[in-house]
Design a protein around this nucleic acid. Structure first.
Lengths: 162, 162
DNA sequence: GTAAGGTAATTTGATATCGAACTATTTGAT
DNA sequence: ATCAAATAGTTCGATATCAAATTACCTTAC
């Protein structure tokens, strides 16, 4: 995940293809590759920050999503899964681990006995409230070289992707 | 991986945090989140394309890397792993599967009996040469709404990330 | 009101990943 | 020359993921 020192930059990759397949315009690889790698670096930084709180990224992801719904709010496992683009079986797994750690609890849905409501425990709530500060600092550090205009422009360009 | 219909856009997420934690400027989440999601969509499209050739992304990744080195060129497993930012054990796994499919072969390094040289077979070479065409088309389709200037600007901005 | 089909969550089985331990070989220091 | 340390690749153990199957419950159509 972390940027390996020896990984070629995306221009070098395009140059290699230019030699091997001069009939192909490989330049999209540079654009897509740069997005890909930027994302990997952000993911790594975010995961490293979560690790400081003894959380892996999957756990971090869930409790952040729960926290931003508001104090006392709950979500069903399937909504959580949809929200974070994950299979419900992966969500079951994440919730198992978080429940074991006492950060969330599963509450039977009073209106639908098939369903559950997932709530942060007090410990989970407190943890997120500390965590989110350094999380935002981490992300800010990743993009600190971008001016406000750069940021807006970057988002505008990314929004144009199909 | 695919963009879930119900996933909130990153502005909505920032807005939720604004309510819950007005003391925090969560705007970096929107920038980083947009990069993250753009990357996920590209990854999905690339994996879907590979699937048309009965390859999963990991296998695709390896044979593309080998192919662009040039016909007949070889790389060691550890260099391959470094090149694609992967553990060597994951690389062993990928090579096992590719070897079973007859797309690559492991050749003992004549200069170092600990080492291997990984080479594409003729079948592997032919497969990549078809595959790479639709791969580039796939990536081009993802960024088709970006003008050449947009693409350069996007890369310039991404390069400014820490 | 009952049966058919839909939905919620979990379980199961397969695969990919990593880090650590392991085996075999090479390199380097004396 | 010898032996310790480094290196190449694999194996092992743990964890995460997905898709498909499963169980339980709800909703709809009649």
């Amino acid at each position: 995940m972390s940027q390996a020192k020896n990984a070629k930059n995306t221009d070098e990759i395009v140059a290699q293809w230019k030699i091997e397949r001069p009939d192909i315009d490989a330049s999209p690889m540079a654009v897509c590759g740069d997005i890909w790698r930027a994302s990997d670096r952000i993911k790594q930084a975010v995961a490293d920050n979560a690790k400081k709180f003894d959380l892996d990224y999957p756990q971090f992801d869930v409790i952040m999503t729960l926290r931003r719904q508001g104090k006392g709010k709950t979500l069903s496992p399937s909504l959580l899964a949809k929200e974070m683009m994950l299979s419900t079986s992966a969500m079951t797994n994440r919730l198992d681990r978080l429940e074991k750690r006492g950060l969330i609890e599963r509450i039977v849905d009073p209106n639908d006995r098939r369903g559950l409501r997932i709530a942060l425990t007090d410990a989970g709530f407190d943890l997120v409230d500390t965590l989110v500060v350094s999380h935002v600092e981490t992300e800010e550090r990743m993009i600190e070289n971008l001016t406000p205009e750069d940021r807006a422009e970057l988002r505008r360009l990314l929004a144009k992707l199909s």
